[in-house]
Simulated scan of single mutants.
Amino acid sequence: MTKYAFVTGANKGIGYEAVRQLAEKDYHVFLGARNPELGEKAIESLGLPNVSLVLVDISNAESIQEAFKQIQEVTDHLDLLINNAGIAVDFNIKPSKLKVEALRQGFDVNFFGTFQMIQSFLPLVQKAARGKIVNLTTDMASQTMFDNGEAGPLNLLGYNSSKTAVNSLTLAFSKEFGENGPEIFGVTPGFTTTDLNGNAPGGKTPAEGAEIIVDYALSETNYHGKILNKNGIIPW
């Protein structure tokens, strides 16, 4: 039986590489992209028959519903939902200088967008034999690690706090789902050089970052309700 995965924000970076890696493991992967032209280019460059483009803007409820309908026309179940799409709008901006509009914009995509994706696609994930929802996070969203210097040093109030909220959302849904599933957890790939951080040097490649996410997504170990980095479970 064909396994299906949906990766948002997947026309570039970590999302793109996650699509490629899952497709190579015989998943039919829906590549989520907000921009039709960039989505088509990503599909073309992958050149894989088991990858389909699904247009989705996760900050738009109507767009999410259209994506749901499109996927539902192909399959009645979704084995894997990877909520990868996200933005960071406050690089090099101190918390005291951050405009509230930018803070709202970050939460609108990273938190409310992820929330709406989970709510909307839950019926399809629940129908899979072992459905999983993976939320992308950052080590800087771990209050414990950020405070004691174990995480990245970037004091990005907008990005970091929106991802802390995603961690809270992950925990809340895990409590609701309980042992009956689906399994939901968060993963941080750690510092990865992508467009999100202006391609800052010194990080993992997108392929290396994606590999961490895909390995957890396909793991036989149950990580329900946890947040993880490459070494395992990390503190809230």
Score class of each variant (00 low, 15 high):
residue 9 G to I: 00
residue 86 G to K: 03
residue 125 V to R: 06
residue 134 V to R: 00
residue 185 F to V: 15
residue 118 I to L: 05
residue 164 T to V: 03
residue 167 N to L: 10
residue 65 Q to P: 02
residue 128 A to Y: 04
residue 221 T to C: 01
residue 42 A to L: 10
residue 46 L to E: 08
residue 90 D to V: 01
residue 79 D to H: 03
residue 188 T to F: 14
residue 42 A to D: 05
residue 86 G to I: 03
residue 35 N to Y: 01
residue 217 A to L: 04
residue 203 G to W: 14
residue 86 G to D: 03
residue 203 G to D: 13
residue 16 Y to W: 07
residue 46 L to D: 07
residue 89 V to I: 03
residue 137 T to H: 06
residue 192 T to Y: 01
residue 221 T to F: 01
residue 234 I to R: 08
residue 162 S to Q: 04
residue 11 N to W: 07
residue 146 F to W: 07
residue 80 L to A: 03
residue 171 L to M: 12
residue 85 A to D: 10
residue 126 Q to T: 07
residue 188 T to N: 08
residue 144 T to F: 11
residue 181 G to M: 14
residue 66 E to Y: 02
residue 153 P to S: 15
residue 1 M to I: 12
residue 199 N to C: 09
residue 124 L to A: 07
residue 147 D to P: 02
residue 50 N to V: 00
residue 5 A to G: 09
residue 57 D to F: 00
residue 68 F to E: 05
residue 185 F to G: 15
residue 180 N to Q: 15
residue 60 N to H: 04
residue 206 P to I: 14
residue 226 K to F: 00
residue 206 P to V: 12
residue 200 A to D: 14
residue 107 F to Y: 08
residue 89 V to N: 06
residue 114 T to H: 01
residue 224 H to D: 11
residue 134 V to A: 08
residue 140 M to W: 00
residue 170 T to P: 03
residue 78 L to M: 07
residue 225 G to L: 13
residue 82 I to D: 04
residue 60 N to P: 02
residue 120 S to V: 00
residue 54 V to R: 06
residue 208 E to F: 05
residue 188 T to R: 09
residue 64 I to T: 06
residue 34 R to P: 03
residue 73 E to A: 13
residue 170 T to S: 10
residue 93 I to D: 00
residue 82 I to S: 02
residue 186 G to P: 01
residue 215 D to W: 00
residue 200 A to N: 14
residue 83 N to M: 08
residue 63 S to Y: 02
residue 70 Q to E: 13
residue 25 K to N: 14
residue 68 F to D: 11
residue 148 N to Y: 13
residue 43 I to W: 00
residue 217 A to V: 08
residue 42 A to F: 10
